[in-house]
């Protein structure tokens, strides 16, 4: 478990360093995710300690969003002013993205019979 946590923090560190070095606005933890994914693909298996640490963290992933989510309180005026627009934009954009994907699946006949 501690070993797994060590791996996660080290990869986060490597990702953060790499992303600052390249100067691209990608969060360092996503770069760390990709580096770890690459390592696991080469290793072809997940070390026990890492599997434990990651399932422990991911089990309560949604709790971890709560402090940032409460920050929505600072955008209250924005929600009141543009709330309906936001809802409409989200609906239009979600439906467009889904239709684009469904279109590709039909075009390339990906669907299994």
């Amino acid at each position: 478990m501690v070993f797994g946590f060590f791996i996660l923090i080290t990869y986060w560190l490597a990702g953060e360093a790499l992303s600052q070095w390249i100067g691209w606005p990608i969060p360092g933890n996503v770069v760390g995710l990709v580096l770890l994914w690459g390592t696991l693909t080469v290793l072809k298996k997940v070390p026990k300690g890492l599997a434990d640490a990651s399932s422990g963290l991911l089990r309560y992933l949604t709790l971890l969003f709560v402090p940032a989510g409460v920050g929505l309180i600072e955008h209250w005026d924005r929600l009141m002013a543009n709330g309906l627009w936001m809802l409409l934009i989200i609906a239009v954009s979600t439906v467009s993205a889904a239709l684009a994907m469904i279109g590709l699946f039909k075009l390339f006949r990906v669907e299994r019979r």
Binding site: L33, L36, W37, T41, L57, L64, A68
Partner: peptide, 26 residues
């Protein structure tokens, strides 16, 4: 103030994001 006091929870998002590599690989 609330954000500062709950930093500990927010911090865990960092390693949790890296941990997404495990289910992705599987």
């Amino acid at each position: 103030e609330y954000q500062r006091d709950t930093q500990f929870i927010h911090f865990l998002l960092g390693p949790a994001t890296v941990a997404l590599a495990v289910p992705l690989h599987e």
